[in-house]
Design a protein around this nucleic acid. Structure first.
Lengths: 213, 213
DNA sequence: ACCTGAACACCGTTCAAGT
DNA sequence: ACCTGAACACCGTTCAAGT
């Protein structure tokens, strides 16, 4: 995935080659015009936060992050005024991946297949990055970049739903926000047990069948 | 509901007439053999905690509870060694209600109707008491009383599933723990939006249809 | 511009001292 | 038996002082 190597640092497993460019070869807005020491601090903060998140700890204590990143707390707050902002920066790569997948899903010839593809990918992305799940569970974005991405995601979902509805594949009273919430619910159900993603296919089947007309 | 007036104090709305007996006319185990001042402190702690929980705040800060209850922190810890224990005591009444409803659901002649009744009630109970939702999302109970109730609930759910499976009403690869997780997921989905329970019927329909063979 | 870290309020948890 | 609350470690957040 070309989208994982911007400044959000890598997620668990990925080796963390931090390139200052996104897939379009531009510096992300949030890192543009940063003094080099500031950029470095920002990366360190994100790296530390990512480490904590991959632990499964979603609380992201600012003081702890500052300590692990080797910066003052104030620096963390300067770069990320709220925990939400930090979370959005951490998950930007995952969100970009999901947005791209949703776009592809919306282009799938068979609308039912497109919906299935969308839901599967959304679940998998949230399982892979709990930060993504966290920001999607509360859909008011703080950062301009993620706001744009979220809007694009919403449009793709709406497109898929419209097409699936038109061909009678799904019930008519479900909108894109319902999908967001239901996917969040299934994700929650998947996490609420020992074997995290082991039941993904089964629960996904339940959701897909449940959405049928 | 006869089960709401034990020592768990009332939930939101209920006027909080605290009777020291449960529906069977016995003192709950946790309040038996308590010195009268201890019993009073326990009630005060539960009352304060319930107030916080009804705010929607599920964090239940022990120090704050102690302050609001007018007792020392140590007293809170003495009665409730962990937050989980406190949560279980708070939700015992709701759990009893749900257990009773599940028993009735298991006796419903039509297994499909029984399942529908069970799921509807489980969702409604969790919407009514977020404490119940919290303890059910992590099914290892600490208090003997709630442990027993949880086991009984599990048996009813299993009974309902067995009967529904036998008559071909539902898929064969869903067990009672799946139901617990999926209900928790739908509950989560319902909370993830402005209008809390407004979509209950719709999401419940999705789940019920999804569970069909 | 940006960074630092002290400062203050607050929570978690324990435990010695009380009645 | 039971209660109190000081004590210590730690987090959230701000902000004056620095470079």
């Amino acid at each position: 995935m070309a989208y994982s190597n911007h400044d959000g640092v890598g997620r668990k497993g990925t080796a963390g080659v931090v390139a200052p460019q996104n897939a379009k070869g531009q510096l992300p807005d949030s890192s543009r015009h940063l003094r080099s020491d500031a950029a470095r601090n920002r990366r360190q903060v994100l790296r530390a936060a990512r480490g904590l998140l991959d632990t499964g700890d979603t609380t992201l204590p600012m003081n702890l992050i500052a300590r692990q990143a080797g910066v003052g707390v104030g620096t963390v707050y300067r770069h990320f005024p709220t925990r939400r902002a930090l979370l959005e920066a951490l998950s930007q790569g995952s969100l970009e991946t999901l947005v791209e997948e949703a776009r592809l899903a919306a282009e799938t010839p068979d609308p039912a297949k497109g919906l299935e593809r969308l839901l599967h990918c959304a679940l998998q992305c949230q399982l892979d990055d709990i930060g993504l799940a966290t920001i999607l569970s509360e859909p008011d974005f703080e950062c301009p970049e993620t706001l744009v991405l979220g809007a694009e995601l919403g449009r793709s979902v709406t497109t898929i739903l419209d097409r699936a509805r038109t061909c009678g594949a799904i019930r008519t009273d479900i909108d894109s926000d319902d999908i967001r919430r239901l996917i969040g619910g299934v994700h929650h159900a998947l996490r609420a047990g020992a074997s995290q993603g082991a039941h993904l296919d089964r629960y996904l089947q339940v959701l897909l069948k449940g959405l049928q007309r």
